[in-house]
Simulated assay, not measured.
Amino acid sequence: MKRIVLWFLGTASAVILMFGYHTSTSGPQATTPVPAGTFTPPPTTSPSASASAQPSVAGSSTATGDVAQTQWGPVQVQLTVQSGKITAVSVPQYPNGNHRDAEINEYALPILINETVQAQSAQIDMVSGATVTSDGYIRSLQSALDHVK
């Protein structure tokens, strides 16, 4: 009888501790600063879903890729090309509907942007842990590159 009571109390304690545990997503949102200029926050108005190339500052042009729909939200890439080289990349649309999306993309987008500028093409690696965003980014990037050439 003593063993049964101890077993029951131990089991009840374990269950109470498991349900009482607060995960990191249940507390106040943590903010991770993103280096300035790494990516552009989403616009207040929704840009057109079609890709376009527009002349920009002296000898450079801006190309906006198609919006790539992903399971977590839209991704859109905008390039600035000068003398045939990608000089700047911004991401006007990306999944940011919740804390986890924002956390993933604050990490992933600067990596994707850096790889784009280094590779000068859409042949870049996906970011582990941000596969869906990476896939949408690459599709929109290729669309923007297709409108530059």
Rank of each mutant, 00 (worst) to 15 (best):
T80C: 12
V75C: 05
T87C: 14
A102L: 12
V57P: 05
G65D: 12
H99L: 07
A58P: 10
N96D: 04
S90G: 08
Q71E: 14
S52F: 10
P55E: 04
P74N: 05
P95Y: 07
W72T: 15
V67I: 15
V89S: 03
P74L: 06
I104Q: 06
D101A: 12
T62H: 09
T87K: 15
L109H: 01
V75T: 04
I86G: 03
T80D: 10
H99K: 13
K85W: 01
T70C: 00
G65H: 09
I104K: 04
A53E: 01
E106T: 15
P92G: 08
Y107A: 14
T80I: 13
W72S: 15
G97P: 02
S52T: 02
P55F: 06
V89H: 09
G84F: 07
Q69L: 01
Y94E: 09
D66Y: 04
W72I: 14
T87N: 15
S52P: 11
E106Q: 15
G84H: 03
G97S: 06
H99R: 14
L109E: 12
V57D: 14
A108K: 04
I104V: 15
T70I: 07
H99G: 13
D66Q: 01
L79D: 03
Q76R: 11
V81D: 01
R100H: 10
Q93P: 00
A53I: 10
Q69P: 07
Q54Y: 03
G73T: 08
W72G: 14
Y107G: 14
A63L: 00
A102W: 09
G84I: 12
A58M: 09
W72Y: 15
S56Y: 05
L109P: 03
P55D: 00
D101T: 09
A88C: 08
K85S: 03
V81K: 08
Q54G: 02
A63F: 10
E103V: 06
Y94N: 06
S90R: 05
I86W: 11
Q54K: 04
I104F: 11
P95E: 05
N105R: 08
A108Q: 08
T87F: 13
N105Y: 05
Q69F: 11
L109F: 07
S60W: 07
V75Q: 09
N105C: 00
N98Y: 13
I104R: 01
Q54H: 02
N96C: 02
